[in-house]
């Protein structure tokens, strides 16, 4: 079995995996980082979004071996200790989450979106969330949250 080694949330992580092990399985099962979720099997829902080398990717559509040597950030690595990241805070302030299952992927996508576009319009936000499905909120408050989070990230 191949050994993979990567930096996850700033820490070195290494484990033996099968070639077929997905990054999300590596994170959840080998590292116990269960904040990254699996909501579908066709790369549609985005519950599994993490950052690999600074870019949002669906960790269910990436093999752990493909991420060998990469720097990975998961939802567990976003807050500064017990202080929420401005995007996390914005989701709480705007009631941008209900059941919480899609939330980690939603927040990771939102941060990536704002990283590429500091002041997204509502339309750009809605388009930018195309790869993330939420069944609870109707997106109304998620869109508000991303807008507020973008403003807070600038400040």
């Amino acid at each position: 079995m191949p050994t993979v080694e990567m930096t996850v949330n700033g820490k070195r992580a290494s484990a033996q995996v099968e070639g077929r092990t997905l990054l999300v399985q590596f994170l959840r099962e080998k590292l116990g980082l269960t904040g990254t979720h699996i909501g579908c099997d066709t790369s549609q829902c985005g519950a599994c979004v993490v950052h690999v080398d600074g870019r949002a990717v669906k960790s269910c559509t990436l093999l752990a071996v493909q991420a060998n040597g990469a720097s990975v950030t998961t939802i567990e690595g976003v807050a500064n200790g017990e202080t929420l990241h401005p995007m996390q805070e914005a989701f709480r302030d705007n009631h941008g989450l209900q059941c919480g299952f899609c939330t980690p992927g939603m927040v990771m996508t939102a941060i990536d979106l704002v990283t590429n576009n500091a002041s997204p319009s509502e339309e750009e936000i809605r388009h930018g969330l195309e790869g993330n499905i939420c069944r609870c909120t109707g997106y109304h408050n998620i869109v508000k949250a991303v807008k507020a989070g973008a403003a807070a990230m600038k400040g």
């Binding site: 790369s43 985005g46 979004v49 870019r55 949002a56 990717v57 669906k58 559509t61 990436l62 996508t109 990536d112 979106l113 930018g128 195309e130 790869g131 993330n132």
Partner: peptide
């Protein structure tokens, strides 16, 4: 194409 995450990979 696809969605932002797909475009990143």
């Amino acid at each position: 194409i696809g969605d932002p995450q797909v475009r990143n990979r």
